[in-house]
Amino acid sequence: MKPLQGKIAVVTGASRGAGRGIAYQLGSAGATVYVTGRSVKGSTTDNRPETIEETADGVTLRGGKGIAIQCDHTRSSDVRKLFERIGREQGRIDILVNSVFGGSERSLPSGDGRHFWERPLEHWEAMMVAGPQAYLLTTRYAVPLMTKHQKGLIVNLTFFIKDQISSNLYYDLAMNAINRMTRGMAKELQEYNVSAIAVCPGWMRTERVIDSGFGPKDGAKETTAYVGRAVLALATDTTVSKFSGETLMVAELAKKYGFTDVDGTQPLPFEG
C-alpha cells in the first residue's frame, strides 16, 4: 500500500512549477490530490501552455487520483466554493500546500528602475495579494476541514537567503511575511494537532526558468521534484509536528530524510 493511500491533499498553484512538482510526488505516494490554479484548457496565465488538467492527469498516471479545480486564490468566493466542494466530496483535508504566487508574471509593468520607490505598486500588490494574502485566505477556509478531525499538515512554499535581501524589497517582504505567518499559524493550530511548516526550495528549473534559458550553470540546479520529495517526506513523517512553525530549506530536509533530486544529487541551498 502506498504511504499516502487514502489521504486527501490540496496543492494550490499547481498548473506548473513547484505546485506541479509537489502534486506529482504526492500522487506517486497514492494521495488524492486536488490541483488548483487559474490556468485551464483554453485559458491560461501569461500565455503559458501548462494547465491544472495536465497536472491532474499526471497525478493519476503516477498512481494517485488527480482532480483539477479552477480557482483564483485571491478571490474569497472562489476559495470558499473550492473547500465547500472538497468538504462535500471528502469531508476532510489531510495536506494543504500553498504555492501560488503572482509576482513573477510577465504582465506586470517593468517600472523605471530596480529601487523600491521606482517600482510600480502593481508589483507590491502582485507579491503580497497573490502571495501571503492568498495563503492566508486559502488556509482560513481549509483549516475547518482539518481541525474537526484533529489532524493535518499545512506547507507554505517560501524563499529566503540567510542574512540577505532576496531579489528585491517587495519580494523579500512577501516571503518573510509567509515565514512569520507560518509561525503564527503553528502556534494557533497546535491544540488541534495541525502542523504548519514553511518550505524553501532553491532556484528551481521550472518551465518558466527553462524557457528563459537558465540552467544548472546559472544556479538553477533543482528540479521541481526535489521540493516535491521534501513535502512528501514531511507528509509521511508521523512526528512532523516537531517542525511546526519552522522555515526549512529543501536541502536541509534532503539531509534529514535522505532523499535526492532526480539525478541522485542533493543540491545545496541557493546562495544568491
Results as ranks from 00 to 15, higher is better:
residue 45 T to R: 13
residue 38 R to L: 14
residue 51 T to K: 11
residue 87 G to T: 13
residue 71 C to R: 05
residue 124 W to C: 03
residue 123 H to I: 08
residue 30 G to T: 15
residue 117 W to A: 05
residue 88 R to M: 14
residue 76 S to G: 00
residue 140 R to T: 08
residue 121 L to V: 11
residue 21 G to N: 04
residue 109 P to D: 03
residue 63 G to K: 12
residue 46 D to F: 01
residue 117 W to L: 06
residue 116 F to G: 02
residue 119 R to L: 12
residue 118 E to K: 09
residue 130 A to K: 11
residue 139 T to M: 12
residue 34 Y to F: 11
residue 14 A to E: 14
residue 138 T to H: 09
residue 137 L to I: 03
residue 79 V to H: 08
residue 79 V to N: 03
residue 37 G to A: 12
residue 15 S to V: 03
residue 24 Y to S: 05
residue 111 G to R: 05
residue 106 R to Q: 10
residue 15 S to M: 03
residue 48 R to T: 12
residue 83 F to K: 09
residue 61 L to F: 08
residue 140 R to A: 03
residue 48 R to L: 14
residue 90 Q to K: 14
residue 57 D to G: 10
residue 122 E to Y: 04
residue 137 L to H: 05
residue 27 G to D: 08
residue 75 R to Q: 08
residue 145 L to K: 08
residue 128 M to L: 13
residue 30 G to Y: 15
residue 137 L to E: 05
residue 125 E to V: 01
residue 31 A to L: 07
residue 116 F to I: 15
residue 19 G to W: 00
residue 26 L to M: 14
residue 147 T to Y: 06
residue 112 D to V: 05
residue 119 R to D: 04
residue 118 E to F: 08
residue 69 I to S: 13
residue 137 L to P: 01
residue 48 R to F: 11
residue 46 D to G: 07
residue 41 K to Y: 01
residue 100 V to S: 12
residue 52 I to T: 15
residue 56 A to Q: 11
residue 95 I to L: 14
residue 137 L to V: 02
residue 117 W to Q: 06
residue 37 G to M: 02
residue 93 I to T: 08
residue 114 R to F: 11
residue 112 D to K: 10
residue 30 G to Q: 15
residue 77 S to P: 00
residue 34 Y to Q: 09
residue 60 T to P: 07
residue 90 Q to E: 15
residue 68 A to P: 15
residue 99 S to D: 10
residue 82 L to T: 08
residue 57 D to V: 15
residue 89 E to V: 11
residue 78 D to M: 02
residue 120 P to I: 02
residue 35 V to T: 15
